[in-house]
Amino acid sequence: MPQPATRDRIELSGLPAAGPLYRRALLGAVPGLGGRRGADVPAVELAVSGVPVDPQRLADYDRVCGFRLADRLPATFPHVMGFPLALRLITAPEFPIPLTGVVHVGNRITVRRPVTVTDRLDFTAWAENLRPHDRGRQVDVVLVGSVDGEEVWRGVSTYLGRQRSPVGGERRDRTESPAPSAATARWRVEPWVGTDYARVSGDHNPIHTSQLGARLFGFPRPIAHGMWSKGRCLAALENRLPEAYTVQVAFKLPVPLPSTVAFSAARSGADWDFALHDQRGRPQLVGTIR
């Protein structure tokens, strides 16, 4: 589908509050109240300057995801900091895919240099690459973090908006999954992971925090946030990561709460391949560090 040639830049005075944005998304899901969706991604980019790191929030995030307490930010933490900006973009009435029922299918983060607790980040967010998929449509939401005019961090989240009828385009990988590597570790993912991660991340999607909310979207019980799973994997490799790298993951199957997952990691030079599998050996997350 065609993408906007240029984007209008909208400067915000601060990060938006997530609560009203979620309420707007739920209201938009009510028939007759949602308005007309755009045919393409909005030709805008949202920006906010000088966002400080909250040391207490960083410490809470480190504990939930398993990182060591340190002044250096985990690669996944700027995603949490700038998430309200991306959320405002996604919950806009003209956004082509409604937030309710959207599936986070992939995430790529590039760390260009370490970000520390004393840095103040300027965030910019926009959407691009709306494209058909055999289960609906996919779109990339880009979030960039800069310090003093220098890009230090970039995240690209790929979201799938499911539709009942096939629309062609990119297809699911239906090839048989390879046998999982020997587990490096097994982790018990406790029920509180959903609510604790929601509290520190601001991502209060009810499929992660509520039995009823999960069932409304077809899950027998709540599931872990995909970005918690990614963070937990990075925490396991924390002391072996370089100062600049790209980490990319595909979210395959949900991680039910509670459950036990198998983590595996294999190194080749400075690169890593890693994965999470359930107790039946099915892949839940597959990732690379380059």
Rank of each mutant, 00 (worst) to 15 (best):
L15F: 13
A17W: 09
A29V: 10
A29I: 11
G32Q: 11
G50E: 00
Q56P: 04
R57W: 01
R63N: 07
G66F: 02
R68N: 09
A70Y: 05
R72K: 12
V80I: 15
M81C: 07
F83P: 00
A86F: 06
L87P: 01
R88V: 00
I90L: 15
E94N: 08
P96I: 12
P98M: 06
L99C: 04
G101A: 04
R112T: 08
T118I: 13
D119G: 01
L121G: 01
F123N: 03
W126P: 08
H133V: 02
R137I: 08
V139G: 11
D140E: 14
V144K: 09
V144Y: 10
G145T: 10
G149R: 10
E151C: 07
Y159I: 09
R164L: 13
V167E: 10
G169A: 04
E170R: 14
R171N: 09
S177V: 11
A179Q: 12
T184H: 15
R186C: 09
R188P: 02
R188L: 06
G194K: 01
R199N: 09
I207C: 01
I207Q: 11
A214R: 03
P222Q: 03
A224L: 04
H225I: 02
H225A: 10
G231D: 04
L234R: 05
R240H: 12
Y245H: 05
F251A: 00
F251Y: 08
K252S: 07
K252Q: 14
L253D: 12
L253R: 15
P254Y: 13
P256S: 03
P256R: 03
R267K: 13
W272D: 05
F274R: 01
A275N: 04
H277G: 04
H277N: 08
D278L: 11
R282F: 05
P283H: 02
P283K: 05
